[in-house]
Design a protein around this nucleic acid. Sequence first.
DNA 1: GACGAATTGACTATATATAGTCAATTATTG
DNA 2: CAATAATTGACTATATATAGTCAATTCGTC
Lengths: 148, 148
Amino acid sequence: MGSALSLLILDVFRLNGLLLAEGDRLVADLGLTSARWQVLGAIALAETPQPVAWLARSMGLYRQGVQRIVNELKQEGFVAFADNPHHRRAKLVTLTKKGRAAFETADRTQKPWVNRLAKGLNTVDLAATRRVLATLRQRLEEEAREDD
Amino acid sequence: MGSALSLLILDVFRLNGLLLAEGDRLVADLGLTSARWQVLGAIALAETPQPVAWLARSMGLYRQGVQRIVNELKQEGFVAFADNPHHRRAKLVTLTKKGRAAFETADRTQKPWVNRLAKGLNTVDLAATRRVLATLRQRLEEEAREDD
DNA sequence: GACGAATTGACTATATATAGTCAATTATTG
DNA sequence: CAATAATTGACTATATATAGTCAATTCGTC
């Protein structure tokens, strides 16, 4: 059991690198990267505008890294800050027209790519994979919480 | 199909971060990190000593990053360079006693941890997961090759 | 409402990744 | 064997990650 999981972990490392690199290529023309794209996604998919720290938590990343990316995205006009009625410093991050357009274009680019990648994959296997990864994620997140 | 895979991809990103962070904690006392550990593993598991570029290829990483880590590991006495009869510049990387001891200790530390993590996971699901990840890896590696 | 705890953004340090370039060296091909 | 191509380590640039610290601010509790 454990040894199968050890091999799986190495696959996760490799896959992560490959997916980030391919993502970078997919959205490079839009002035985006995999990380910027992911941040735009978190902003776009939130029901209401959120401060940076909340976005970071929803992505499982450190505030500091997300803050840097958000600041760059603002510099380049993809996002804007709105006043937060509940907090003077923690501004709410919103998408600009440019940001929304970039995210939607990225989404349209991603669809055929991910469909091609998924082609022929067994639906049952895919569901099992999601189950396993979700279980591992939960256990590791709990472990990380305990370490604090 | 595609949308299930999109969610799976986000899980891979998250899992990668969690696994690296937990790996860092597991081997910190040994003077190692997740990345150093992985490099030591590639050296230890190779049948014969390899130059840095070969190690990098076997791990799916860029030469430059592996070179930096190997140089640091040499600085701290975990690895040593041996002359390569087939290439004057490309020295062969070998484990020192200290390096081998650290890797073996890390391996012993990792076993109960990974067994705990694997506990209760369905064997069939685990096999399906490895199939899916291996398929994705192969397709993405092919795609990356085509881009060069 | 005062006081301590938690949150937040700003700043910094460090580790790791992809990526480009260069000279030295090795392999290949005609 | 000479010319060319490929590989390799060294150096550099840049992006992204975890992580620590600090002051400003908000929240919770008494």
